[in-house]
Design a protein around this nucleic acid. Structure first.
Length: 506
RNA sequence: GCGCCCGUAGCUCAGUGGACAGAGCGGCGGACUUCUAAUCCGCGGGUCGGAGGUUCGAAUCCUCCCGGGCGCACCA
């Protein structure tokens, strides 16, 4: 079972106290290395004074080998001060875990599918799609780290009105004409016109190349035209009715906001919503315990639709999950740029990456919570790239690599101590010990922004330690080398989760 | 009108029940003969949109109000 030094400490305390208890790092060092508010929470249920319960917890804690002393504070907090041996043990545990550190323990392994990006191939990917991918991929990576089996899928519409307009636009240019009024235009249309054949697969190939460069890799692709084949078999299984010549799904009776049209009144062709039905069945039949849709906030109106379809067909709606993220606003020198594929002034993912690089781009796009609209000044992001926090974190990784290049090769996870640990060392260890909690929390909330925020804190603590203490040829060399290795591992894991490289030199 | 999201330092944002609210950028002032100064240290900066309520304790939970964004297609 992967290490979680803090949880282990909490568990040994809970065992003796007979109550669940959580440890947190107090903001003030005067309040110890860790503190618990368990007494305050238990007081009500047990009808006892908080400080009385706190005294019992403190007594138990003081009896633990790794606890130097325990104090009762304020209304009933218990503050723990730990011995150096605990810190050495924590670092050893992290090193024992290797790449798996942060994954936490005892999870049921499930099969998860994350469907993301799924932009229709009518043009290059925009920055909005990039956020979809950066967010979805970060969530996928969190699932993977915690021991789940994850597959990434891209779904696209290869038929229908939009695709017709797209194809017609390219054809028009090939004939030397202007694209139709409601068509697509721009340099990329001209480029596609210069090539032969159906522009849809050509465009899709370009999109794949952009995503590959953006470090997002799909396991599978699904096409709408293919899925629609199954509709004759599936539609009769739904709760439907005829109205105004169209076929409607009675989805409002299954938790959706409204009913949806499945077959159009004019020609009885299937709508996108109908294809959704086939696609959902396709996903669930493939045996995923959880099917995750990553959608832009402009699609929030259909958030309840997918679970409604699952219910209608007798599947457990808990297997279906919709993740929403707010839009991205790009500015250039303060001027808003419009994000429409129809005009020439869009900002594409490739342009974005050209200007600020993959590392900064991915960092920027997961750095904010999904509910927060992102505002990126492209000029500023490119210009200030050296001051971007992503480089601050990468630099810590590179600095450690530098130390390790010069270090003797006597790696052992049993870290002996010579003399007492300094404040910077203890703070850094406690920071590293937070990773399993950060990861678990980020996954539970589907909020990967916690990872880069934490990575900054790790880099912060490391840089401070580095500034104050020498590693090589110091009294504490053995412990400090272990601490450096553990720090490097934690930073590498955080960057990996965000999709950013961890360089050995900068 | 209805629904979802947001409102925290000059700017961009972390922070969903705990002890004096945080970071980056921007401003000012310091620190390199050392394992990388892309670093470190210090200073200044906030009625957490507003008003009530729940709680021992609220930026965080509930209600109302104000402001901004996005939806409310037989487009996807």
């Amino acid at each position: 079972m992967p290490a979680d030094p803090v949880k282990e400490l909490a568990a040994s305390l809970a065992e003796a106290t007979g109550a669940e208890l959580e440890l947190e790092r107090p903001a003030d060092v005067e309040h110890g290395d860790y503190a618990t508010n368990a007494a305050l929470q238990l007081a009500g249920a047990r009808r006892r004074a908080p400080r009385e319960i706190a005294a019992e917890i403190a007594d138990t804690a003081a009896g633990l080998e790794v606890v130097e002393r325990a104090e009762i504070a304020g209304p009933g907090f218990v503050n723990l001060f730990l011995r150096d041996e605990w810190f050495a043990g924590a670092v050893g545990g992290i090193l024992d875990d290797g790449d798996g550190y942060g994954g936490g323990g005892a999870h049921e392994r499930t099969r998860v599918q994350v469907e993301m990006v799924s932009a229709n191939p009518t043009g290059p990917l925009t920055v909005a799609s990039a956020r979809n991918g950066a967010y979805g991929d970060a969530v996928a990576r969190l699932f993977a780290l915690t021991g789940h089996e994850v597959e990434r899928e891209y779904y696209y519409n290869d038929s229908g009105a939009q695709m017709d307009r797209f194809r017609a636009s390219v054809e028009a240019v090939r004939r030397g004409e202007e694209p139709p009024e409601d068509g697509y235009r721009g340099a990329y249309i001209d480029d596609l016109a210069a090539l032969k054949g159906d522009p849809v697969p050509l465009m899709l190939k370009e999109i794949e190349a952009s995503l590959d460069r953006f470090r997002i890799h799909f396991d599978t692709f699904r096409r709408q035209s293919e899925l629609e084949q199954r509709l004759p078999e599936l539609l009769p299984r739904l709760d439907t009715y005829e109205k105004d010549g169209a076929l409607w799904a009675r989805s409002s009776a299954y938790g959706d906001d409204e009913d949806r049209v499945l077959l159009r009144s004019d020609d009885r062709t299937p709508t996108y919503r109908a294809a959704d039905v086939a696609y959902l069945v396709d996903k669930l039949e493939r045996g995923f315990d959880r099917a995750i849709y990553v959608l832009g906030a402009d699609h929030h109106g259909t958030r309840n639709w997918y679970a409604a379809v699952a219910r209608m067909l007798g599947y457990d709606p808990a297997r279906v999950e919709v993740l929403l993220y707010q839009l991205v606003h790009l500015t250039r020198g303060g001027e808003q740029t419009k994000m429409s594929k129809r005009r020439g002034d869009v900002v594409f993912l490739d342009e974005f990456v050209n200007e600020i690089g993959v590392d900064a781009a991915r960092w920027y796009l997961v750095n904010r919570g999904p509910d927060q609209t992102i505002e990126v000044d492209v000029d500023l992001a490119a210009e200030r790239s050296q001051k971007n926090p992503v480089y601050y974190v990468q630099y810590a990784h590179a600095r450690i690599a530098g130390i390790l290049r010069n270090a003797p090769e006597n790696a052992s996870n049993k870290l002996s101590l010579s003399g007492s640990l300094a404040t910077e060392e203890r703070e850094l260890v406690k920071r590293l010990a937070e990773l399993p909690g950060v990861v678990a929390d980020a996954l539970a909330k589907r909020g990967p922004q916690a990872v880069p925020a934490y990575a900054i804190r790790v880099a912060d603590d490391f840089h401070r330690f580095y500034h104050e203490h020498r590693v090589l040829e110091s009294e504490q060399e053995v412990f400090r080398l272990g601490l450096c290795l553990a720090t490097q591992r934690v930073i590498a894991t955080c960057l990996e989760l965000v999709g950013v490289e961890a360089p050995d030199r900068m």
